[in-house]
């Protein structure tokens, strides 16, 4: 069973983050939420592995409760 990679894996973390925020430029809150949803679906398909995806969802859910 594969698991989520929680070690740093970005070649250029600041560049990635800036692009991510830039992707939302000029969008309303609703449009931003919709963009995020589309982005998650695209990335999820790219990952494919359901063990990884299930783990990631659990991690995201648990971290949000802190």
């Amino acid at each position: 069973m594969s698991s989520v990679n929680t070690k740093p894996n970005f070649a250029d973390p600041d560049g990635f983050y800036a692009k991510l925020i830039e992707a939302h430029d000029g969008l309303s809150d609703e449009e931003s939420a919709a963009l995020n949803a589309r982005l998650i679906l695209i990335l999820s398909n790219h990952i494919g592995d359901s063990d990884v995806l299930n783990d990631a969802m659990t991690m995201a859910r648990n971290a949000g409760q802190g």
Binding site: T6, F16, I21, S32
Partner: peptide
Amino acid sequence: DFITPKSKISHTFRNAVLSLAGEYEFARPL
């Protein structure tokens, strides 16, 4: 832009990074 997020979504992402960075090393470089 990270310290003083300029939009609501930017603030949401910033706090998402912070909420993950304690437990998950991957978020720390962000």
